[in-house]
Simulated scan of single mutants.
Amino acid sequence: MNTEKFNHFLNEISKEPLQVIDSNISLEDYFPIVISSKNKELLKFDISSSKAWEKHINLFLEKNKAKIGFGGYLEKRNIYDRSDYFKNQSENNKRNIHLGIDLWCKENTKVLAVLDGEIHSFKNNKNYGDYGPTIILKHQIKKEVFYTLYGHLSLKSIENIKIGDTVLQGNTIGYLGDSSVNGEYAPHLHFQIIRDLEDNFGDYPGVSSKENIAFYKNNCPNPNLLLKILN
């Protein structure tokens, strides 16, 4: 199935928004947030500090009377420069284009399976600036197999699960971690759709370089096709 048809397939799975964060939080409590290099507010604090990030996010949510800040698909970000895991001298090779949607909210917020599926893999990705505890679910709808990735979880989210466990849409599969385990970020969920995992296990690139973005854009469709946070 080509990219256009697959995106249409994803969009048609549900006419209604599919929730990936605590279903008690209404979509009316979501507010878009920009974390690209275009956001000059990011120049006003130390982006290498998780505490400064948390303060910035909390003030943003309070100002906008929101419980969740969301966004970031294909957003070009300079925040990854704080980590040698992503940083690269060449602009074309620098991994700074975000491939998922981030949902910024309080630690320990419930994370939900967006669709029926099974646990494909899980792992604690411990690099500074990485996902921390991560779960990947495998889904099959009709003949189409694809995956969803849930990053920046708490440690307990991956303690009592095993590969092959069945999950149902809306099941709680984990909780958001704090900065001590989630790669040194303010608490948030990184949610990503992946067509081909390329033999990865409990991990998959969440940011791309400019050089490779054409491939990753095709392999990692816009998560909003399922979440429908924005019309």
Results as ranks from 00 to 15, higher is better:
77 R>T: 00
194 I>A: 01
153 L>V: 02
224 N>R: 03
3 T>R: 11
228 K>D: 01
191 F>I: 06
199 D>W: 14
44 K>Y: 12
44 K>E: 12
67 K>F: 06
208 S>E: 00
69 G>H: 09
25 I>H: 05
108 N>P: 15
144 E>A: 11
51 K>F: 12
182 N>S: 02
139 H>Q: 04
163 I>A: 14
93 N>C: 11
135 I>Y: 01
3 T>A: 10
162 K>C: 11
38 K>G: 09
48 S>A: 15
50 S>G: 08
21 I>K: 08
222 N>K: 07
190 H>F: 05
141 I>Y: 05
159 E>D: 14
206 G>R: 01
33 I>G: 05
210 K>P: 15
24 N>G: 12
13 I>A: 02
126 K>T: 13
128 Y>E: 13
10 L>N: 03
110 K>Y: 06
191 F>T: 10
74 L>Q: 03
166 T>E: 15
212 N>I: 12
103 L>G: 09
17 P>M: 07
15 K>R: 15
215 F>A: 08
72 G>E: 01
82 R>M: 10
122 F>V: 00
21 I>W: 02
152 H>A: 00
198 E>L: 02
41 E>R: 11
223 P>V: 04
42 L>E: 09
216 Y>M: 13
168 L>H: 13
208 S>T: 04
205 P>E: 01
83 S>F: 11
62 E>I: 10
1 M>V: 09
38 K>M: 14
106 K>V: 14
216 Y>R: 09
35 I>A: 15
158 I>E: 00
84 D>G: 08
71 G>V: 01
108 N>T: 09
30 Y>D: 01
209 S>V: 02
118 E>M: 12
227 L>D: 07
125 N>A: 04
147 Y>I: 04
140 Q>R: 11
91 E>I: 13
218 N>G: 13
41 E>W: 08
131 Y>N: 10
154 S>P: 08
39 N>P: 00
40 K>Y: 12
15 K>N: 14
220 C>H: 07
195 R>Y: 11
152 H>T: 03
210 K>L: 11
